[in-house]
Design a protein around this nucleic acid. Structure first.
Lengths: 214, 214
DNA sequence: TTTACGCTCGTACAGTGTACCATCCTGTCG
DNA sequence: CGACAGGATGGTACACTGTACGAGCGTAAA
């Protein structure tokens, strides 16, 4: 009885597990947890459930992952990789001189809506400024957005000299708007706004995109 | 040894409890839970802990509250009341013909930053469109924001006829921006943006505020 | 062969929400 | 005044959670 679910069978996972080395097993754990987050929500991501899915004792996971929080960090890092990739490729597909801000914005919001549990985990998990690993991940994710904004501004002639701070601030506002829309949409709070999500997004991007030289 | 904590002593709560009627006890439970959320975070809001704080058995709470989810709903409703009140009074204090959008925006973001756990609970809790109680609460909260935006637009002459849909959409964008900033600030993600929070807020509000007649 | 080390996981502890049900208290009726 | 009914109370229990501890194991080095 094959199902449409992306979850591999337990026996398949057990076979994979046996053949993998340390890093591979670590990756497999994250992958399984990732799938569970996607399919069943954050509360379903449980050490015992993951272990059972792979076909291994619960305590075994602790040999490869430093507890549930660490596992969450791994999932978040993977999430930032994906969103970075999605938005980058969405920006690439348009012509360089096109000043259309929408494809990247749409890719961002679509990612959030298609991965609500993941997006929530990525941004609702509080991170302390001391954690340099988290800082690394965040900067990596934001760097992609900033780069896209910088190039777009350059292509439209809105920025002559490389005013890093200014473009970073503009990217920040862009990000804030996208993030606000994404989180409200995920939480099911968009129904009280009139108009389709795409319309809202378009007007929002229009409002927040720099139209004067900065 | 008096502390600065807002948490009343257990004996005091037990005394209150005895003197209260059904609704009063229900309100007391929500109040205690509210304080715990504020002081110790969402995970600390526990049936057993609340019951212990009041000095009553855990199962007793179920006579007044329909489980933890219902309790969360009560807290969320209280949160919307407060944010509505804060933003309204902030908007009132400025002159009617003043087109400054900042006081209300500042009040909104300040509320979120001063009540991070509450704000997170209010907006991260997914609500299904069927739940009309939730719908009621949401509409109440948003109505205040919409009203403020509508009056401001009217005072600046940007809207002649009462174009409800348009002003509601404008209010939606305003809200999305504030919400995005608030959630990123709460999650500690603002450090990678340059400039103070107030600067970011000012530029953001400037970008998202309607400047042409709509 | 002996020793050492890392992987595995059964057991256990301290939590969680909450269902069930015996007890008790209180208000009402005979 | 006594008896009964109904709601409030909370002890116990079940199914979960994360994870600490330590015993058993296979493999590799000495």
């Amino acid at each position: 009885m094959p199902t449409a679910s992306t979850t591999p069978s337990k026996t398949s996972l057990a076979r994979q597990w046996k053949e993998l080395d340390r890093d591979g097993r670590r990756a497999l754990i994250v992958k399984v947890a990732f799938g569970m987050l996607q399919d069943d929500g954050e509360e379903a991501v449980t050490i015992r459930r993951i272990a059972a899915a792979i076909g291994v004792g619960a305590m075994t996971l602790y040999t490869y992952v430093d507890g549930l929080e660490d596992l969450h960090r791994q999932i978040i890092a993977k999430g930032f990789e994906i969103i970075h990739q999605n938005c980058s490729s969405a920006c690439e597909t348009q012509h360089q001189h096109d000043d259309d801000w929408m494809p990247g914005a749409r890719a961002y919001v679509r990612f959030a809506i298609e991965h609500p549990n993941l997006y929530h985990l990525m941004f609702a998990t509080p991170c302390d400024p001391e954690d340099e690993q988290f800082d690394q991940i965040m900067h990596g994710g934001f760097a992609g957005l900033h780069e896209a904004v910088r190039r777009r501004l350059a292509s439209t002639g809105l920025v002559g000299k490389p005013l890093e701070i200014k473009t970073q601030q503009a990217a920040g506002r862009y990000w804030i708007a996208l993030h606000g829309l994404a989180t409200l949409a995920i939480a099911g709070r968009m129904q009280i706004l009139h108009g389709s999500l795409d319309d809202v997004l378009e007007h929002l991007v229009d409002a927040v995109s720099p139209t004067k030289p900065i």
